[in-house]
Every structure is written in structure tokens, then in C-alpha cells.
């Protein structure tokens, strides 16, 4: 395993541990302003959407909003199933099957 990969993992450990240890280890001297807590609530949706949407609407960098784009159709199906049922695994499996079928047929 390469040095870069070890560095990646160790850096991720440091970043994660510092946050988790913040109050538990370093005590109550830390305080979060309410505005920061509110902003944090938006982080997961923002980051995940920033990854998903470009890959769905422009796989390989080329904008493709047609229904023949398996990435777009698959993402919409995954999102719709999860949105309606909240069942992540079902959403992933069904959308992956549709994606595979489209790849194979088109």
C-alpha cells in the first residue's frame, strides 16, 4: 500500500478524531454558536448532492439530460424509492438493476 494512501487515511483519522474528541476529551471550554449548529445540519445534503448531481446529469463531463442517460435515470429511481420508502438497500439494488439493464440494452 502506497505512502500516499497511508497519509490519506492517517489525515482522515486526525480530522475525524479531533472532532469526536472535541468535548469528550478537551472538556467544556468549547462552545458552538447556534448559527454554526444550524449550518452543520445542511452539510450532508450539500456535500452528497455536490457529488451526485454532476455525475448524474453529466457522466464523463458531458451534459446529458435525456432519458437514455442511465446515470440520470438510475439516480432518479434510487432517490425516488428512498424518498418514498426510506429503504436504502432496496433503492440501491433496484436502481442498480435498472442502470444495468439500460447499459446492456442501449
Amino acid at each position: 500500500m502506497s505512502t500516499t494512501l497511508w497519509a490519506t487515511i492517517l489525515g482522515m483519522f486526525v480530522a475525524t478524531f479531533l472532532i469526536r474528541a472535541s468535548f469528550l476529551v478537551f472538556g467544556q471550554r468549547l462552545r458552538f454558536p447556534p448559527a454554526v449548529i444550524e449550518a452543520l445540519g445542511h452539510v450532508p445534503v450539500a456535500v452528497l448532492s455536490a457529488i451526485v448531481i454532476p455525475e448524474a446529469i453529466a457522466p464523463g463531463g458531458q451534459l446529458n439530460l435525456s432519458l437514455a442517460n442511465p446515470y440520470l435515470v438510475g439516480t432518479l429511481i434510487a432517490g425516488l424509492i428512498a424518498w418514498k420508502t426510506g429503504r436504502l438497500l432496496v433503492a440501491v439494488i433496484v436502481s442498480f438493476a435498472v442502470f444495468g439493464a439500460m447499459r446492456w440494452l442501449l
Binding site: T75, G79, W83, L88
Partner: peptide, 12 residues
């Protein structure tokens, strides 16, 4: 991508 989409969607 599907995994991420399924993680985000219920929050929308």
C-alpha cells in the same frame, strides 16, 4: 452514486 442519492433523498 445510487447509494449517495438514496442517503440524500429522504431528507428532501
Amino acid at each position: 452514486i445510487a447509494t449517495f442519492a438514496a442517503m440524500v433523498a429522504p431528507q428532501l
